[in-house]
Design a binder for these strands. Structure first.
Lengths: 174, 174
DNA sequence: CGGATATATTTCATTTATGAATTATTCAGA
DNA sequence: TCTGAATAATTCATAAATGAAATATATCCG
């Protein structure tokens, strides 16, 4: 009743693997393992943002806004700048501005011109922002459990170690 | 190997790891490994879609449109339906409709009512679509190499095996 | 010092993606 | 057979994200 694809067997990704396999046979040299990995990453990412958005929506947030708040929460002084936020979330600066406008509207952050560098803006998590974050945690931990609960400690370490590699590589090469 | 792999180093993800660590100290029970993994997945996904979009843009495509075309290319008969596309790409049906409108405009696919089930629509890759795909491959393989070239065969297998797990799990639980 | 260049943020137009409602068809069961 | 539920696709209003240009400040170096 609740799953859209019950009969297909082991889930929608099986289908994806099938068409990658056909393509591999059509295109000599097709890097099917890398492609499959890329598709997996996309799917997992979609799932995690869909699931967490479902939770966050009830509290007037979405995944990006929440991540922004969490970055402030995890910063000494609970203050950082839009560019740090942009790097940390992967969102483009223009989007960060919009996100912060909204968080400001909601009273979850404050915006102040930076003292040291007047091009900069300091974004500071308000007490209300902190409270919201703390209230939210249990629901989100449940989401992470739902998605990543299938991994034991060793697998988590393994995955983390591996997925860091392509980021380091790209950082270096632009 | 040419990557600057130090984990205390320059990459933007080091910053992310730092704030996760602080948060971990503030919030007892914070599932920092799972959170870190989630953030990694987001970052890697962003990078791969950014990089491939840069290539695809030159050919009037984007990552989703391209994936849609590839799914058709890898399907016997080069024909499938919007719902298959939606599952395979992770995009919502409304977006698939829009995507297909555009691909149609570009002459890369055709749309026909399905014979067996008249609710359905058959999406068929045109000869021109095929040609575009084949022309594009070398450039894209370069992108996948740029991102995933850091992995050897064993690591690719490992990652693929691991990342399949959360998808299977979510498929089952809705 | 002062001009060129780089960095930080924002604005605005546009592209891309989603939710909710709608239409059409199929299917399951009384 | 008929009726209600499920499925497939689309439309439309709206949200979310981006690129490119604009603004303001900082830094580099003659």
């Amino acid at each position: 009743m609740r799953n859209a694809e019950g009969d297909g067997g082991s889930g929608s990704f099986a289908e994806v693997e099938r068409y990658i396999e056909v393509t591999r046979q059509r295109l000599p040299g097709y890097p099917h393992e890398r492609v499959k990995l890329a598709r997996l990453v996309t799917h997992v990412q979609k799932r995690q943002s869909d699931l967490s958005n479902a939770v966050l929506k009830r509290h007037g947030l979405n995944y990006v806004k929440y991540t922004a708040l969490m970055m402030m929460y995890g910063t000494p002084g609970r203050t950082l700048t839009p560019s740090t936020l942009s790097e940390g979330t992967g969102e483009k600066p223009a989007n960060i501005t919009r996100i912060c406008d909204e968080l400001l509207q909601q009273g979850l952050i404050e915006r102040h011109p930076s003292a040291e560098d007047r091009r900069r803006v300091d974004l500071h998590l308000t007490r209300e922002g902190e409270r919201l974050i703390e209230k939210l945690q249990p629901e989100l931990w449940q989401v992470w459990d739902e998605i990543y609960g299938c991994f034991n400690a060793a697998e988590l370490r393994q995955l983390t170690r591996l997925l860091r590699k392509p980021l380091a590589r790209l950082d270096a090469s632009g």
